[in-house]
Nucleic acid binder design. Structure first.
Length: 270
DNA sequence: AGAATTACCTGAGCGC
DNA sequence: TGCGCTCAGGTAATTC
């Protein structure tokens, strides 16, 4: 499942591979994602040059002439750059054919992804405008988290997964950051001390940054034919219910918060 | 306003 | 082998 680090690694690879290339054709095979792929892309995009690739949370922002193609990979979305003419497979919903006989192909089995076109400032688009600070940016800090959580009764894990509070923190990294911070995911957000908010914010930053750094070395999706899967041992708590805590050896437990699987160590996280 | 819930979708894993 | 079931989860929309 693409989390922020994969989206960032994808952004870098896309930028490196396709910046300056011209879109020659657009093929929409399956428009019916959760939000439909607009059919106008077929007329809108050809002839435009990809000027650069940005990111806001988990949204990829492809600067194309005077507008932006915005792509969200959802749960199972995946982008690959393939030689033009590569036969499409199952769930290959969208192709952007670029100059140099390259095809940017969007595949998404569960169709939770999103593709749309916007002109002007993409950050002002209704789907992006309410998003909170970037976790790796200067506006996200312990002080910010402290003030954003004061009146909140919801579990801290749900708070840090809320896009309007901080951008792009998904279930995996919420679990991991809370474990590393030693904070129980069920704690009411407003009960965290300033010191705990500092620790949590700082951990969110480092855990995401580390994953980006590692991903950058192994995720060469320009040649990869298959979506990269997480190594089962890559995480300290996520996916490890019932297994021993790496800190104390005790058994990791699972609760559901906001209908999301939450794994934690009852001894190490308070 | 904040919290809770639902909808969207298919592959994987399971019991039988 | 295959059927039916449950689970996984990001985000928008809806409801309370």
């Amino acid at each position: 499942m693409p989390e922020l680090p994969e989206v960032e690694v994808t952004r870098r690879a896309l930028a490196e591979e396709l910046t300056g290339a011209r879109i020659e054709a657009v093929v929409i095979r399956v428009p019916k994602l959760r939000l439909a792929i607009p059919s106008e892309l077929v007329e809108l995009l050809p002839g435009r040059m990809l000027r650069g690739v940005g990111r806001r949370g988990k949204y990829l922002l492809l600067s194309c002439g005077d507008g932006w193609l915005v792509i969200h990979l959802g749960m199972t979305g995946h982008l690959r750059v393939l030689p033009a003419g590569t036969p499409p497979g199952k769930h290959d919903h969208l192709d952007l054919v670029f100059s140099g006989d390259r095809c940017l192909r969007f595949n998404d089995p569960r169709k939770f992804g999103t593709v749309f076109w916007t002109t002007g400032d993409p950050h002002a688009h209704p789907l992006l405008v309410e998003i909170g600070p970037e976790p790796l940016g200067g506006d996200f800090s312990g002080d910010y988290l402290f003030s954003a959580s004061r009146t909140r009764t919801v579990a801290v894990k749900q708070l840090i997964m809320k896009a309007s509070v901080v951008a792009g923190v998904g279930n995996i990294y919420a679990n991991e950051a809370l474990f590393i911070s030693g904070i129980s995911p069920s704690r009411p957000a407003g009960s965290l001390s300033r010191e705990e908010c500092n620790r949590l914010a700082s951990t969110i930053r480092t855990v995401l940054q580390k994953s980006i750094d590692q991903g950058s070395t192994i995720m060469d999706f320009r040649v990869a034919e298959e979506p990269l899967r997480y190594h089962p041992l890559a995480f300290r708590v996520y996916g490890r219910r019932g297994e021993p805590c790496f800190g104390c050896g005790g058994k990791l437990e699972e609760v559901r918060l906001g209908n999301r699987s939450t794994v934690y160590c009852p001894a190490c996280q308070r």
